[in-house]
């Protein structure tokens, strides 16, 4: 890790609402994430954790409300995107490229130069060094996911958005992820983790997305009425 720290400020959202496929997933949702902070997203399946993460990444525009950096509402999605790294449940690993090539592509794309040292550090952090020349197609699901997590380290960005980052990881890799997040926060980086299980952070605010789901009474069919009565 290089010693540089982040000065991006507080990432926040206010009065956020999101409509997906005609349904209001959540409404009136607000959060504030200071530099070095952590936010853990909880909630049942379908409560909108992934939707909220994609909204935070700028992939989904909010139906209402806005995101802000240090209280400045963000108006340029590209500028926002440059400040974040997003790890979704899709690993974005190219089967025809080796582990090292996969990482150095993202390193070059984000930092604008080929940074072999950063690529090596990222591979070391997630125990991928011995697989460096292996093509992506030979990796197991867990190894592919570690490669996706290693992308976080090839080029620094202040905000990490992690969707179920512990999926398919073994004990050692869970430890590596916890260490990486602690180090990132130590340098003023912030992290949002959507997770059912361990959140990989010692202290952090918890946001239950399910509590922002609008509770509308639906009287659609007879058995719906029965269920709501029961």
């Amino acid at each position: 890790m290089s010693g540089d720290s982040f000065t991006a400020g507080t990432f926040s959202g206010s009065n956020l609402a999101c409509r997906r496929g005609g349904r209001l997933v959540f409404t009136g949702l607000a959060f504030s994430l200071p530099a070095g902070g952590a936010l853990i997203l909880r909630g049942a399946n379908g409560s909108g954790k992934t939707t909220l993460l994609r909204l935070m990444a700028g992939l989904i525009p909010p139906t209402a409300g806005h995101l802000a950096w240090s209280d400045q509402p963000l108006d340029d999605s590209d500028e926002h995107a440059a400040k974040l790294r997003f790890v979704s449940h899709l690993d974005a690993v190219k089967p025809a490229l080796s582990v090292a090539e996969n990482l150095s592509f993202w390193s070059a794309l984000w930092s604008g130069r080929i940074d072999d040292a950063a690529t090596l550090r990222a591979m070391d952090a997630f125990g991928l060094r011995h697989l460096a020349t292996f093509p992506g197609r030979l990796l197991s699901a867990g190894q592919r996911h570690r490669l996706a997590l290693a992308r976080l380290l090839v080029a620094p960005a202040p905000l990490w958005l992690l969707d179920e980052p512990g999926n398919a990881l073994d004990e050692a890799s869970l430890g590596a992820l916890t260490a990486a997040i602690a180090d990132h926060r130590g340098r003023g980086g912030s992290v949002v983790v959507a997770s059912h299980g361990s959140a990989f952070v010692n202290d952090g605010n918890t946001l239950d997305v399910g509590t922002f789901t609008p509770k509308t009474a639906v009287h659609w069919s007879d058995d719906a009425d029965e269920e709501s009565a029961a």
Binding site: G22, R23, G46, T213, V218, W220, E227, S228
Partner: peptide, 16 residues
């Protein structure tokens, strides 16, 4: 469609 979607969401929340 919306009524159906909210119904699914409502049932899920009730179960949770």
């Amino acid at each position: 469609r919306n009524a159906r979607m909210s119904q699914i969401a409502g049932n899920e929340a009730a179960q949770a």
